[in-house]
Design a protein around this nucleic acid. Structure first.
Length: 301
DNA sequence: GTCCAGGTCGCGC
DNA sequence: GCGCGACATGGA
C-alpha cells in the first residue's frame, strides 16, 4: 500500500535525509537511482515491513504549499489501522516532519553563508524511529572510525534483526529484547562491538526490564539540562553522545564536540593553530538554541 | 610495534 | 571539579 506524508515547506527530502550520517547505517539505505530511502521496520505487532520513501509531488491551495512524500509499504498481510498509525508516527519522527525550524531559518537568513546552505529546506536531519536505536548507534560512533561504526551496526542488524519475510536478507534494527537475548559475549565476539558490548547490552537489559523508559524522553518537555542529565545516566553515553542525542530529540542548543568538530573549527577559524574546547564552543555561542545546526551546516553537513 | 579513530569510565586528587 | 590510564577493534 501507499501512504502520503505531508511536510512543511521548505523541505528538500533528498538533501535532508542525506545530510546526516545515519543514512549510511543499516537498516536505512539510500537508493541513488530512485532517489528513495529504503528501510525495513519491525512493528510492535511483530510484523516486519519494507518501506520506500520518495517525494510525492506538491499540493497547492490558498497560497500554502505543502510538500508531499509518498511511502510505499510492503508487508505480507495488509496492515491494520493500528499498524498504519504506528508506521506513520515512526516515519514522521524519523524524518522530523513536525519540527518547527522557522526560527532557525530566520537566524540563518541573517547569516548569509549559512542561509544559502539551508534555504532550500535542509536541517531535518535523519534520526531513528526509536530513541533506543539512536542511543545504540551513537555509542557505536564513539572512539572508533565511521567505517567500523557502519560495520558494527550492519552486524547488529544482520545477526539480530527480524527479517522481512518476502526477502529474509532484509532485516530490521534489532529490538531491545533481541539485543538483550544475544548476550554480551555474542555482542563482543560476533558483532565485534568491542568494549561497547557491555554498554549496549546493559542499555537493552534496562529497557527490557522496564527500569529505563526511553520512549518517554521523546515527548518530554523537560528543560534541556535535565534531559541531558538523564541521557548521561546511560552507561557509555558521555558529553559528546549526550549532546548528539539531544540533537536527535530536537534540542539543538548543545554542541557535540568531537575530533571531527575540533579539526574543522581549528582549521576554519584558528588558522590551524592550537585551540581549547572552550574557544571552539565559543564560535557558535551566538546561535543559542540552534548551535548544533549552525555548526552542522557551517561544516557543510 | 605505535598511534589513533566523530569518547567514556573509574579512579585519585 | 580536573587529569590520567584503560578500554576492544581495525586501519594507517
Amino acid at each position: 500500500m501507499k501512504i502520503q506524508l505531508a511536510s512543511a515547506t521548505p523541505y528538500d527530502f533528498a538533501q535532508s535525509v542525506q545530510d546526516y550520517g545515519w543514512i549510511g547505517l543499516a537498516p536505512c539505505l539510500w537508493l541513488e537511482n530512485g532517489q528513495m530511502l529504503r528501510r525495513v521496520e519491525r512493528l510492535t505487532s511483530g510484523n516486519v515491513i519494507l518501506i520506500h520513501i520518495a517525494p510525492g509531488g506538491e499540493e497547492r491551495g490558498s497560497g500554502l504549499e505543502t510538500a508531499l512524500l509518498e511511502a510505499q509499504l510492503d508487508a505480507g498481510e495488509p496492515l491494520t489501522a493500528t499498524e498504519e498509525e504506528e508506521i506513520i508516527a515512526k516515519l514522521r519522527w524519523m524524518l522530523r516532519l513536525d519540527e518547527d525550524l522557522s526560527s532557525f531559518y530566520e537566524r540563518a537568513q541573517a547569516s548569509d553563508g549559512l542561509w544559502t546552505e539551508v534555504r532550500t529546506g535542509r536541517g531535518r536531519l535523519l534520526r531513528s524511529p526509536t530513541l533506543f536505536e539512536d542511543v545504540v548507534k551513537t555509542i557505536c560512533t564513539t572512539n572508533t572510525t565511521w567505517r567500523q561504526t557502519k560495520g558494527m551496526v550492519q552486524r547488529l542488524v544482520d545477526y539480530l534483526g527480524s527479517s522481512y519475510p518476502q526477502d529474509p536478507d532484509l532485516k530490521a534494527f534489532p529490538a531491545p529484547e533481541q539485543i538483550e537475548a544475544a548476550g554480551i559475549e555474542f555482542l563482543q565476539k560476533e558483532i565485534r562491538l568491542g568494549y561497547r558490548s557491555a554498554y549496549v547490552h546493559q542499555l537493552a537489559q534496562e529497557v527490557v526490564s522496564g527500569e529505563r523508559d526511553l520512549t518517554r524522553l521523546k515527548e518530554s518537555d523537560l528543560p534541556t539540562p535535565e534531559l541531558k542529565k538523564e541521557l548521561l545516566t546511560i552507561k557509555g553515553v558521555g558529553e559528546y553522545a549526550a549532546n548528539t542525542l539531544l540533537m536527535a530529540l530536537g534540542r539543538y542548543g548543545e554542541l557535540a564536540l568531537d575530533s571531527e568538530m575540533r579539526a574543522f573549527v581549528k582549521e576554519k577559524y584558528f588558522d590551524g593553530q592550537q585551540v581549547t574546547d572552550a574557544e571552539i564552543l565559543a564560535v557558535y555561542d551566538e546561535w543559542d538554541q540552534w548551535r548544533y545546526l549552525a555548526y552542522w551546516f557551517d561544516a557543510g553537513a
